[in-house]
Structure formats: C-alpha cells, structure tokens
Design a protein around this nucleic acid. Structure first.
Length: 159
DNA sequence: GCCAACGTTGGC
DNA sequence: GCCAACGTTGGC
C-alpha cells in the first residue's frame, strides 16, 4: 500500500468534479512525463491512497482524498488527434503513455500551499521540493498520517 | 504575464 | 554522449 499526491487543475477536474463523475471515478489521462508515468505503471496498485491537489489556481493545495481504482492502462488521448494530449509518435501496438483510474473518497478542507510549507513535519515532502514539477509524487507514510490524522483529524479507517 | 526550474529534442 | 535551444509546469 502506497501513498501519493496527484495534481489536478480544478478548471480541468476539481475534487467536486471528481465527486460528480459517474462512479465518482476518472481516468487520470494526460500525463506526459516519464517519471510520473512510471509511478503509475510500476508502483501504483489498486487501493493506494491519494492526496488530491489543486494546482495552477488561485488557492493551490490539498483539496481531498482519493484512491487508485485501476491498474495502469494505455491513455486513450495519446491516439486522439483532436486531443491536446495527442502524441503522433505513439503507436497503438506500443503505447507510450498510460494512466490509472482514480476514485473519489472524500473532500476535505483545503490545506493551502502556504500551510503545507509552514508545517515542519512536511518539510521533506516531495511535492514541496524546490523546482519540483512532477504532477504525481510519492508521499511518505509518516507524511500521510500527519496530514490525515493531525491536520484533517481523520483516521484512515474512517475514510 | 513573468520567470525559475527542469524535461525533451535533435544536431553534432 | 554532449549540450544548446526550446517547451512546460506552476507559483506568484
């Protein structure tokens, strides 16, 4: 069981949008970075926990909790010439990009980026590292526990 | 809109 | 394999 932080632009898909999806589940398509793809392909398993993070918006920060809901499978948008994620170099016989499905668990209060940065227990969080641009980052179990239990006052078995 | 940081591309 | 040029991310 692993823990992750996944960034989504709320204009694209906010935590409320996720909650409103059929099955409250969305394909995490559009990842075009090999490191992030490899996390999905090689390390994620169904049931992994996800901090759902709003990025590129007025109030960036953690907005909810989700769960990995499928193994990685080829990202359909790479073959769709009308998609902004179209990749002409990717072949259906050997897809280049993969995604998992992500399912809504709950919305939380927004833990904004300044609050994350002000929290000593989270000083080593990967997403806060200088220059980090990865849209998917691993979260340490200790960091997960601190955020959910201490900052959000949730027990994992209450999720 | 700016820009720091970093990833990717492609010529050599 | 090097590295300059270019593109993207994402906070501000």
């Amino acid at each position: 069981m692993r823990y992750w932080l996944m960034k989504s632009e709320p204009d694209d898909c906010s935590i409320d949008d996720l909650a409103a999806m059929p099955e409250q589940t969305v394909a995490w398509y559009g990842v075009r970075n090999y490191q992030a793809r490899n996390f999905m392909m090689n390390q994620m398993t169904v049931g992994d926990w996800v901090l759902f993070y709003h990025s590129s918006c007025p109030e960036p920060g953690i907005a909810g909790i989700a769960q990995v809901a499928s193994p990685a499978y080829p990202d359909a948008t790479q073959f769709d010439a009308s998609s902004r994620f179209f990749d002409p170099k990717s072949r259906p016989e050997q897809p280049r990009w993969f995604n998992v499905d992500v399912r809504f668990v709950r919305k939380t209060r927004l833990i904004g980026l300044p609050e994350l940065r002000d929290t000593p227990e989270l000083a080593n969080m990967r997403v806060l590292a200088r220059g980090n641009r990865l849209s998917i980052t691993p979260v340490d179990p200790d960091e997960w526990r601190f955020i959910t239990e201490t900052m959000l006052e949730l027990k994992t078995d209450e999720l």
